[in-house]
């Protein structure tokens, strides 16, 4: 579970990138984080993952405070950044083992897990090549595999589907669903409203650092008293601001 309580972040220029944001992402759900460019999605994700310290407020990951108990909180998280250019001179296999060591994945079962994931994402033949030689989509896949290898309770993904081929995209969505169904938490940001519409149990719309809406799609339709697509509702909401 992720609880974000009254979190604020102001950048040097005095602009509040995130303004008293509170949010709860529950166990067993896929939570979509939507918003136009520069809305504060990535800043929020950075604060949740411990990359940025918030100026005010707290973030709890399964009860661990990311500021006060960072290591335990981070152990609960699997994070996929929007920039997959990680340690390019490591081989895919070395990267997976690095992540497994850092997240203290026991040696037994690791081999099977790697082969299973590689098979699922069709990466087996690329495992012994350097990440540098991968295509954008393959890099994305190896990062996702690096998260899945330690099987964290809480998944946080920043634009995870961009650059993935249809099959990997399908696989990832399926894995996200399975993970949530097992009682875990999945939170991801996206621009692609269709994905949010199909995959998410609940969504939040954020603009200019503030939450405009949190709830299910049905609740959103009820609030706005329309029966149009998410796209239209999203545009209506963010335009009003």
């Amino acid at each position: 579970m992720i609880s974000i309580n009254n979190v604020t972040k102001t950048y040097g220029s005095g602009i509040k990138a995130v303004d008293s944001l509170s949010l709860e992402v529950r166990k067993g759900e896929i939570f979509g984080f939507l918003g136009p460019n520069g809305a504060g999605k990535t800043t929020t994700i950075k604060m949740v993952t411990g990359i940025l310290p918030p100026d005010e407020g707290t973030v709890l990951i399964n009860g661990y405070d990311i500021a006060k108990d960072p290591i335990n909180a981070k152990m609960e998280i699997g994070f996929v950044s929007d920039d997959p250019n990680v340690f390019e001179r490591l081989k895919g296999l070395e990267y997976l083992n690095f992540m497994a060591d850092i997240y203290k994945v026991p040696a037994e079962g690791r081999r099977e897990r790697i082969l299973e994931l590689a098979d699922e994402f069709e990466m087996t033949n690329a495992l012994d090549d350097k990440i540098q030689s991968y295509s954008h989509g393959m890099k994305q896949k190896i990062v996702v595999m690096g998260v899945l290898i330690h099987d964290p309770d809480v998944w946080i993904l920043d634009e995870p589907l961009s650059g993935l081929d249809p099959k990997s995209s399908f696989t990832l969505k399926k894995i996200m669903r399975d993970h949530a169904d097992k009682g875990n938490t999945v939170m991801f940001s996206t621009h692609v409203l269709e994905v949010a519409e199909k995959v998410c149990d609940r969504i939040a719309v954020i603009n200019k650092g503030r939450i405009l809406f949190v709830g299910t799609l049905a609740e959103m339709k009820a609030t706005l008293k329309t029966d149009t697509s998410l796209e239209k509702m999203f545009l209506e909401m963010t335009d009003d601001e």
Partner: peptide, 23 residues
Amino acid sequence: QVSRRKFDVKRIDGFDSRNPVVT
């Protein structure tokens, strides 16, 4: 671009789990 080789599953067995600082 480097041509891809076939992956030999035995390669995985060469890895042990290590202490995080060492890794």
